[in-house]
């Protein structure tokens, strides 16, 4: 039933479209329902349509006004939230640069810098971070309940912060920095502006990624007891993570990566032990062995 007439109209229409359409590549728009071809119309139809068309030039109806008003309101709201987001992003950038300073001073640990000194320098940034998170909390408190609307804008920065803090904490205490402790370090309060638990856990996974390198370099520098300590810690951490029921998300992927860190540390420990280098920590070393199996 595809008549020549119809296809002729189609082409004509397409041409007119091309000239009017700002996106000329869109050809699929020509949809001429079959019934249109044989559609009847009396002159009366014509007049009615003409009048309705010209109606759009007349002053807008209350319906249109109502619609315009609502959309204008939306525009204001979205502009406001856009500005808020800008402010959040600029703080997130500052957090990132503070984190980078912290990280660079912490990297000296791999060059056998004396631990207390290195930590001292890195800790200098904690105050800066605290202040920045304080600012962030203030912004978020302006729009209660919308923490997670903007969460994505400081998420990855915060994960890095957690990983560094946890690493420093481990260097000091050989224990894990807990969620509540991390919040306290950053001056966050769960009731208002807290540290998201998943961000915390991801940060901990990031920290585990740093440990193999640390162990390797410590051993090279002659610290043969280090692998045992790290292995014990990582084994416990890995066991603790296995208590979590994870979804198929980023955290899961990061946790899956943790076992490679564990294996690498095990290898280093093995290398050290089999050569009889880890003489000092022999007895406790066997405990570590027991823990990993």
């Amino acid at each position: 039933m595809k008549s020549a007439f119809r296809s002729a109209i189609c082409t004509a229409l397409e041409f007119s479209l091309r000239s009017l359409n700002p996106n000329p590549y869109r050809k699929t728009l020509v949809l001429l329902p079959r019934y249109v071809v044989v559609f009847p119309a009396k002159p009366s139809h014509f007049t009615s349509m003409a009048s309705s068309e010209s109606g759009s030039h007349a002053p807008p109806s209350p319906t249109v006004l109502n619609l315009e008003r609502q959309f204008e309101e939306f525009r204001h709201q979205l502009d406001d939230s856009g500005n808020l987001r800008e402010r959040i992003r600029s703080i997130a950038l500052e957090i990132e640069s503070a984190t980078r300073l912290m990280q660079s001073s912490l990297l000296l640990i791999h060059q056998s810098g004396p631990i207390p000194e290195v930590l001292e320098k890195a800790k200098g940034q904690i105050g800066v971070l605290k202040e920045l998170y304080n600012k962030l909390a203030e912004i978020i408190l302006e729009c209660p309940g919308q923490y997670y609307r903007y969460h994505g804008d400081w998420r990855s920065e915060t994960q890095t912060v957690v990983s560094l803090l946890a690493f420093m904490h481990w260097l000091e205490t050989e224990g894990l920095l807990l969620h509540a402790e991390a919040e306290e370090k950053l001056g966050l309060k769960s009731s208002e502006f807290g540290l998201d638990t998943e961000d915390y856990l991801i940060g901990i996974c990031f920290m585990s990624n740093d440990l193999p390198r640390y162990v390797v370099n410590r051993v090279t520098a002659g610290d043969y007891d280090c692998p045992r300590k790290v292995l014990k810690f990582l084994t416990d951490l890995h066991a603790a993570f296995r208590m979590l029921n994870l979804r198929n998300d980023f955290l899961r992927k990061k946790f899956d990566g943790m076992k490679y860190d564990l294996r690498r540390v095990e290898e280093v420990y093995y290398d050290v032990k089999i050569r009889g280098l880890a003489t000092t920590g022999n007895t406790t070393g066997e405990q570590g062995d027991g823990g990993q199996s």
């Binding site: 229409l13 949809l31 559609f39 009847p40 119309a41 014509f46």
Partner: peptide, 14 residues
């Protein structure tokens, strides 16, 4: 386009 088709060709079918 649908409105256009009716508008243009409607009168051809009295």
């Amino acid at each position: 386009n649908a409105c256009f088709s009716v508008h243009v060709r409607g009168s051809e079918f009295p």
